[in-house]
Structure formats: C-alpha cells, structure tokens
Amino acid sequence: MRRRQLARQLRVLRERAGLTLEAAAPKLDWSASKLSRIENAQQQVDVHGVRSMLDLYRVVGDDWEEILDLCRESRQKGWWRAYGLGDDSYVGFENEATAVLDYTLAYVPGLLQTAEYARAVIRTAEGRMSRERLSNYVAVRLIRQQRLTSSEHPLQLTTVIDEAALHRVVGNPRIHAAQLQHLIRAAAFDAVSLQVLPASVGAHAAMVSPFTILRFTDLGEPDIAYVEHTLGALLMEKKADVHRARLLFDKLRSDALSPADSVDLIRQLAEQS
C-alpha cells in the first residue's frame, strides 16, 4: 500500500511539472515503460531514483523529505513476509487499512475465526500443504485479529455474514460450536459490527461471491475492493467498481438483522450445536 501511495504522489509531481512519461523518462535514464511501472506501483524504486525524480520535477521544501520517507517505508518488508506471504498479498493492504467492510457467504470472516476453524478452512481451501505452511497461514490470521482489540494500531470491522455460513459445520461439531461462541464474544468488541443476512431474504444481488472493501482514512488513499474466489482473487480500484461495492454492502446491511438480533440468532444456533 505504501508503494501505491508513493507511486500516486510521484505521478502527480510529474504531471504538475508539466512532463509526459516520454519526456521525463529519458532525463532519468529510464525507459518510459519503467517509469510507467513505477507510477503504477508495479515496480519498486529506490531512494536514489526518487531523488532524481524530485530534482527533475523541481520539488522543494517539506515535500522532499516526506516523499523520501515514504520511499523508505515502501521498501520495508512487512511482518507477513516472515510467514511466506508476498508484498502483494491481501494482508499487506489490510495492514494499512483503518476499516474493513466484509461480506462472507460460505464461512465466518477470517478476522473472526478461531485458530481451529481457520486451520480447517485453510486446509480445505488450499489442499495439500506442509504442516509448517499451514501453521504460518493460521498464525497470520490470528495476528491480523489482534488489531480488533489494539489501541495502537486499531482496525474497524463491519461484517455481514450470510446465515448459511453459521449452519455449515467446518472441521467438526466441536470446532463449529466453539466458533459460534467466539462470534458472540467478538460481536461485543467496540471495533466490531456484526450482522447476519438471514435466509429469509431470499435471492439478492450478492449471492455470487463474497467481497471486501478496505478503507485507508489515515493515508488519505481511496477505498479499494477485494474479491476472493475459488481460483484466486481480484483487487478492484476503479471508482465506479468500488462505488458499486459500497452501495451493495449498504443494501446488505439494510437487509440483514440488527447487530443485537444477529447475536441472538448466533446464540440460538450455538445452543443447538
């Protein structure tokens, strides 16, 4: 996310200097394609490269140091790298987000999963994997959850869970029952707003796939939408796509049970399990 923030600012500075890609690239001893990749966050750039760009774009004052600091931050390895995840993983984006709007269909949101439930979901979704890799994936999920109760690096979660996910037994009945109890406890967190979309709603516009919206209020960056599916994932940044996702999420929340009624339903299912 820091690389994207840096890329966006570098592009603005070039345009403010009145230079096209084709005009600026040769002056930096780069190809236009390389400069384009940097401005689209597809390629990293070091501090020396950024200094050359700032010189060319005649940037002065506080902006100079702010951009250089951002460049240094963009090159730092995220904590998730130690667990085998790349810089372009969803975790890297969520780590910089201030709020997550999440709609899930088939299972409980990752940010609200117990360790055993997460292990069962990951093992089934990813297929055969080493014990170490599975443990790493579960560890990452649990580390992400710490932000829901953190005062230093908080994360606000607003989630709508399809009722079907609450009936689906993942792992075994004991794991399922423990997961329902965990949802009841998590719903009481100040940073969590949990609603259940009841089956009685019938057909609706979000039946095809789950989706997530990430907000970056502290960074001043626009929202992005993320869709995870059976064969991979899709990151969406176009304003029209993200706006549609926001409208759809608002509709899901209006159709869902209230937070209090949602907890009551989960408690009933927990008692039956």
Rank of each mutant, 00 (worst) to 15 (best):
M1H: 04
R2M: 11
R3Q: 14
R4K: 12
R11N: 10
L13N: 07
E15Y: 04
L19W: 09
L28C: 02
A32S: 15
V45F: 05
D46T: 06
V47C: 10
G49E: 04
G49D: 04
R51F: 03
R51W: 05
S52W: 06
L54C: 11
V59E: 02
V60H: 15
S74V: 00
R81A: 04
Y83P: 01
E96G: 06
T104Q: 14
P109T: 07
E116L: 11
Y117S: 08
A120P: 02
A125N: 13
A125V: 14
V140Y: 03
L148E: 12
L148G: 12
T149Y: 12
P154T: 08
L157N: 00
L157W: 00
I161T: 02
I175P: 00
I175L: 04
L180I: 12
H182L: 12
R185I: 08
A187G: 10
D190P: 09
D190S: 12
A191Q: 12
L197H: 01
P198G: 03
P198E: 00
M207L: 15
T212V: 15
E237N: 03
A240W: 13
D241G: 03
V242R: 00
H243Y: 13
L247I: 05
L247Q: 07
F249S: 01
D250S: 15
D250M: 11
L252G: 01
A256V: 02
A256K: 00
Q268M: 10
